[in-house]
Design a protein around this nucleic acid. Structure first.
Lengths: 125, 125, 125, 125
DNA sequence: GTGGTCTAGACCACG
DNA sequence: GTGGTCTAGACCACC
C-alpha cells in the first residue's frame, strides 16, 4: 500500500479498513489484525496504527475485547451507515466542485455517464 | 471569504482564483489584485497571499510583470486546461471512491442523477 | 558557509545540497538534516531552510517521510539526471555567452584549454 | 526581445547593448537610441531604459552629449576591455561550476569540445 | 507602487 | 522528534 503524502497516514488506513468492511472483505464480528501485525505489514509506526484503531473505535466500527484483540462491530446497521455516509460525502464533494466550476446539471450527468462507460479511473493505484 | 480549517489557506485561495478564471470572472490578461491588496481584503498575512501567487505562477496560470503586478495568462488553451484538469480530478476521485465502496456503474449513474435533480449541495458556501 | 548577497539564500543552499548529492557526499536514501538542524548550523531562519527543502522535493531530489525527516531520493537515475542537467546548463550559458560575444568555436576551445591548464578559478570559495 | 524573469530588465538591456558594441554592430562614436525610442521599441518603462543608460555611463561605455543624445565611447581600449571582462567572467563562472560538480580538467575540455562541435546551444532564443 | 526574500516566533498535526 | 503553515514585520530591488 502506498500513501498519499497530503493525507495523514492514519486517515488513509481508516479508509482502507472501512472499505474492507463495506465491501465485505471484513465481515461483522471478524477479528482485525493487531497493531503490531498491521504496522509491520504496512511498514509504518505502530503509534500510527494505534491511532487508526482509536478513531475507528470512536466511530463505533471496531470494538476491543481486552486481551483478545479487536473486532468489527456486529451491528449490521452500523456498517450500512458507514457506506451511506461515505458515499454521501463523495457525492457532495463532487457536486459542489462541479457546480463551482460552472458545470450545469445536464453536463454533470453527461460527463459522469461518459466517464463511467469509458471505465475511466478504474485502473490507477 | 471564510476558510476551512482543514485546508491550508493558500490552497483555498488558489482554488478561489482558479474558479474565477475558469468561470470567466477573471479573463485572460486581466490584472489580479496585488499581494498587499488581497491580503488586507481577505484579512490574512501578505506572505500567505504571496505563496498562493507563487503556486499559481508555477502552474502557468498567472504571470508576473516586474514592478507592475500579476496578470492572468493570455493563453486561452491554458485556461481550458485548468478547467479540464480540475473537473477530471473531481471525477476521478469520485469514481474511484464509489467503485471502492462497491458501487456498480449503474448505481453510480442513478445516484448522481438523483442527487443532481434534488439540487443537493448546491447551496452551502 | 558564506552566502552571496546577490542570490537568494534558499537557492544557494539548494545548489549546495545538490552538489553534495552529485559528488556522492550524500548518497541515495541518506537522511538529510532536519529543518531546524540545518537552520541553526547555517545560522539562518528555519523558514528559509524549509523553502529550500520544498524546492528540492518539487524537483524530486528529496523525499519526505512524515514525522521522520527527509531523505535523498533512492532513484539513481534521478541523481544522474541532476548532474547532467546542471552541467548542461552551465555549458549552454557559457557557450551562448561566448558566441554572442563573437568568439569562434576554435577560440572557445583554446580559451578553455588555456584557462583549465592555468588552474584558473579553482581556488575561491 | 524577451526578458528572463530572474534578471533585472535593465541588466539584460545592458548586456544587449554591450554585445552590440563588442560585436561591432555599434561602433565607436555611434549614436545610440534615445530613452523614449528604446522604451517603446522594447515595450518597457522609460525609467528602466534610463537606468540602463546610467549604468553604461558609469562604466564609461557610453557618453552623453547634452541635447544631442548618447554615444558609444570613442576609446577603442575601453571596448576591448569590455569584451575581455565579459568573457573572463563567463569562463570563471563556468569552470567554478564544473569543478564543483566534480568534473576533472580533462572532462571539461572534452565536454566543451564535444558541445562546440555539435553546435549545441547556438540556437535557442 | 510592485513583487521577492528573510527573520522571528508561534502553533499544529503527525509519527 | 519531525515537517507544514501562518503571522507580523522588515528590507530590498525593480518599474
Amino acid at each position: 500500500m502506498e500513501f498519499d503524502n497530503n493525507l495523514p497516514i492514519y486517515i488513509q488506513i481508516m479508509y482502507y479498513i472501512k472499505k474492507q468492511i463495506v465491501t465485505g472483505q471484513l465481515k461483522e464480528g471478524d477479528k482485525i489484525p493487531s497493531v503490531r501485525e498491521l504496522a509491520t505489514e504496512l511498514q509504518i509506526n505502530p503509534n500510527t496504527v494505534q491511532r487508526t484503531f482509536q478513531e475507528l473505535e470512536r466511530e463505533g466500527i471496531v470494538e476491543t475485547k481486552r486481551g483478545m484483540g479487536r473486532y468489527v462491530t456486529k451491528e449490521r446497521g452500523k456498517i450500512m451507515d458507514i457506506k451511506r455516509e461515505m458515499s454521501k460525502e463523495l457525492i457532495q464533494t463532487f457536486l459542489k466542485g462541479m457546480y463551482s466550476l460552472g458545470f450545469t446539471k445536464e453536463e454533470i450527468i453527461n460527463v459522469i455517464t461518459g466517464a463511467v462507460e469509458n471505465n475511466q479511473s478504474r485502473e490507477r493505484e
